[in-house]
Design a protein around this nucleic acid. Structure first.
Lengths: 142, 142
DNA sequence: CCGCATCCGTGCTGATACTG
DNA sequence: CAGTATCAGCACGGATGCGG
């Protein structure tokens, strides 16, 4: 992440010294990971695969709304990152199974913490949005 | 998460368990949270604010690369979600401080787990990318 | 069944200039 | 200091058609 402080102090919540500087570049592991899982379909696909290996068209059915194009593309990206493995069974017709790798199953753990938090605070977030949007409207009063 | 557990046991009969269906819509708390923090600057700004309240231009210096436009916009979004509070001190010149709310500080906890994972696996991910990209090139052999 | 190729609209993003 | 306004580029993502 290129945390510039006194000599590359690692991690985030450790010392309470000077305020840290954050870089968003190719070397930033935060963005390198979050940018991928933060896209439109990655998280849903990863969680679908938690329940076990699955085929392309089965995934397409289970991840409602994903297009063929985006499912292919996202699976390729996840495979490139090393989260998902792709296995082709040369049967007739061809069967292709996608499965979480060890790193993929590892990633899902902290990800699940985040999702649990999201589910627990969903209502609170939506209330906050309504309040915020309401204030914006009332700002138009004279 | 809008998990629909009904039938859906289509195709290939040998499903050992019922697999869940994931929807990406406005009601999905996963996407509702991940979509926001997954954007280009949210995580870095949130982590910058973990160290305490900060002013606009200070944040702009610490989050290297962010433009004035995106910093404003992201802070507004985070405020709307309820993660960040905005306080204006009518001094001369004006001072505006941004601070994590309780929910914001709460969110950072699971987020920190994810970031720690990211830092620990950054090298492995980059190796995986190189391998993947290497395979793509060698596929051009004859 | 599992894709890839192509077209194309839309929204995110940065650069720049201006305001209270 | 802390924004807002406007313009332009381009990447994201959907729809469709073709191929192994």
């Amino acid at each position: 992440m290129v945390v510039k402080n006194k000599g590359q102090a690692n991690a985030i919540g450790e010392e309470k010294a000077e305020k840290r500087v954050f870089h968003n570049n190719d070397e930033c592991p935060i963005r390198n990971v979050v940018a991928q899982i933060g896209d439109k379909w990655s998280v849903l696909i990863l969680f679908a695969l938690v329940e076990g290996p699955d085929r392309f068209n089965s995934l397409k059915s289970r991840v409602v709304g994903v297009s063929q194009r985006m499912l292919t593309q996202t699976l390729r990206d996840l495979e490139r990152e090393g989260y998902v493995s792709r296995t082709v069974y040369p049967e007739v017709p061809v069967r292709v199974e996608y499965e979480l790798t060890k790193m993929g199953r590892d990633l899902v753990k902290p990800l699940y913490q985040l999702v649990s938090w999201a589910e627990a605070h969903h209502d609170e977030i939506r209330r906050s949005r309504k309040v915020y949007d309401g204030r914006s409207e009332s700002a138009l009063d004279s």
